[in-house]
Design a protein around this nucleic acid. Sequence first.
RNA 1: GGCUCCGUAGCUCAACUGUAUAGAGCACUGGAUUUCGGCUCCAGCGGUUGCAGGUUAGAAUCCUGCCGGAGUCACCA
Length: 637
Amino acid sequence: MENLIREAILEHAETLFGTAVEETMIQFQKTRRDIKGDLTLVVFPFVKLLRTSPIEAGNKIGEFLTSQLDFIESHEVISGFLNLSFTDSYWTGRLGEIDADDHFGYEPANSRSRIMVEYSSPNTNKPLHLGHLRNIFLGYSVSEILKARGHKVVKTQIINDRGIHICKSMLAWQKFSPVNEHGERETPENTGIKGDKLVGKYYVEFDKRLNEEATSILEAWESGSFEGYSEEVIGEVKRLSGSRDGKDEKTIAGINGKIKELAKNATDLFREAKEMLIRWEARDPETYLLWSAMNGWVYSGFEDTYETMGVDFDKLYYESDTYLIGKDMVAEGLQKGVFFKKEDGSVWIDLTEDGLDEKLLLRSDGTAVYMTQDVGTAFDRYRDYPDLDGIIYTVGNEQDYHFKVLFLILDKLGYSWAKNCYHLSYGMVELRNSEGEVGKMKSREGTVVDADDLMSDVIEAATEMTKARGHIAGMSDEEKETLFKTIGLGGLKYYLLKVDPRRGMAFNPEESIELNGNTGPFIQYAHARIQSLLRKAGEVSTLSNQNEIGDQEKELVKHLSEFPAVMEEAAISYSPALVANYTYELVKMFNHFYQTVDILKEENETAKLRRLVLSRSVGKVIRNAMNTLGINVPQRM
RNA sequence: GGCUCCGUAGCUCAACUGUAUAGAGCACUGGAUUUCGGCUCCAGCGGUUGCAGGUUAGAAUCCUGCCGGAGUCACCA
């Protein structure tokens, strides 16, 4: 109805103001809750045209609109804001429309362009952790929101299955895994350990052994023994050691860190890992076989985790394929003169004119880097889906710079679609204990929160709560299992999605399983209660010819009416948080309504029907909203 | 140090991207109701929106400068 009002003003601008008005002058906002009215027009822009006070200007426009449009019942001007009130029958009409539309808030499927959303994209050398959970829930939810708004969506991930980090796990397994009585090394089958956990275990093992070896090298260096190391390394270590004199603690720690890096690079273990990578790139059969076996373990582990999470993918890309495409593109760019080669053979792009610096695309030994692969992946995706309207990369904000460079490179290579690539950058999840201390998640220090562990923890907490307070009598064991999972994961997903993605957030394990306040289970409970109400009510017909409505009901209908706009806003800004907060507000309003108004006990049949239809609509919107967050809402709990 | 992002109640977060008295939850204090599902509702407490200027009829929001925090500046991914 904003459009109707806007048109009316534009059409009659000459008579009202004596001149045409810009469309941008007509600004609407929601009427404050504590003020009478259903929609507010900001008067300030018109004050100058009319050369009167804001109050007079507002009244003039208000009188005009009230006489012109039959759904406007009255108006009131308060300090420069024109508050318009709509008739009751307008609102009962709205309620009827919402009730009749099962897909309220959604646009018809496939009515809009195709968009690809990348999320998860794990390394295949260690299990998923809390940081991945935010990434995956966010990417999945953005996909579902875009789908709900009519887009064709391709959910994808790039699997980082190539590189030195994979070789570390492989090497550690090969060297350090115990051999059983059958002469086999540890596998998921013979140990019962989940595949990704097993591979992760050897990644940690590698790091431990590397540190041990590096420490003994450091000790040797400190005592002045440098035998067996290259001139280059020795010189660098001596230079760094000398530069520590007279520096403050922080600087010295930084220098010591650099020396330690040198020591790590000088270890036999690291050298072996590098050799293994070279063998892999050369397709050495034994190495390749081990690589695919261990990756297979990881994939089956990830699959289990994804299934628990309730997320899926339409199309997978593997770095081990796309880095080759990337290398071809680098060669092509080199010919075009977009890139240049240094004397040592490494390939670079100069971005200094764009305010960035030089960036490496190919190492001097000809092997690919992270950027090479990403360039190839983007190209591959547009080749697979020529009608793509954009790619959304769900990746943490520590990679802001990387994506800025990536998109710039694609643009310079002449791909017009580069401008449609978007980095959905989200903030880090910090871990917070009950004392409120913030800790970083570091896999080496054992402070990571494992994704599987966390999910089973929240499900367990939900199980206890529900057994103690829920209405689950008569449910089968399977139904109960599903319900506990729904509640536990619903809570976790909501907890991670309700915060604006761009912001960093604190993760408090205790809060994540809370059931009151702004939480998933609070919303799920409201839905279950509505369904219970409707079951008790029996058959509820549709609404017709009602033209009265209570104040609280009107507030609810008003809020329901905003749902499509909120969904659209969430789709534009890629922000599930908007949907979450909208739904929470809706539930609070409904609980208030439910607490103060009789529904089943109401004797007036007209009012009873209207309230039941309203409850049904609220339930539907809760369901439609939560579905886009990947959260199920139970019938009872 | 350069660049990027961020500082809102004790804590976790909102604020339609510039508008009326900056809102919720948790925690704390008090109350309602034991009902159509108490995982409910109502009230109170709590703020100089990091600081100082500027632009505007109007600033948490835009600009400048400080202060504080995070990230990033790899032939790692």
